[in-house]
Amino acid sequence: MIEIIFITTAIVCVISALLTVTAHNAVHALLYLVTMMIAIALIFFLFGSPFAAALQIIVYAGAVMVLFVFVTMMLHQGEQSIIDERTLFSLKTAKGPLLLAVILVIELLLIGITPLDNPSSQTALNTVNSESQQLSAGSKTASLTSVKSLAKQLYGPYKLLVIIAAMLLLASLIAAIHIARKSSKLTENSPVNGDSESKASEAAP
């Protein structure tokens, strides 16, 4: 049972990833990307880490994707793009992601109806986990994937990694802000309004 669900999810994941890359329209690509993220979340869920699945949904499918779609739409402004968007979000074009997402929903319902009785995959993953050797044997399988144990790991043995990850975010933030910033040389040559207008008109077609 779990194998079938996993294989279906994996296939959905790969198909939507391929369609993300090959889609001509940015918004279509994003829709497929959301589907892929949800499929990955389902895989996490299947393998017994609901917390990772929830994070995947909240962070990627939720926050990041909304940002992406938002920015993509902000870049398309003007009369022409409104007409474009009307065609973009017709049911016909949303068919592909919708179909893939429906498959995922059906799988989720299946899991809900028939609880997975074989925890074999979970125990297999837990025994190979080296960190679990430090935990006491009794609490091993139950609490390893809980939020509390995750937090204990992060702020216990892995606390330096949290710092490095913070620095990583800082580095990417600085780099992104610096690259995206308009240089003052450009703004001196052309007035600010004219510059942004010309950019908008470039982006519109």
Binding site: Y158, L160, L161, I164, A165, M167, L168, A171, S172, I174, A175, A176, H178, I179
Partner: peptide, 16 residues
């Protein structure tokens, strides 16, 4: 884990 995170820290700074 520490290797990969440090590597990413370095490469993302280099992109900037």
């Amino acid at each position: 884990a520490s290797f990969f995170l440090s590597l990413e820290l370095m490469s993302l700074s280099f992109v900037g």
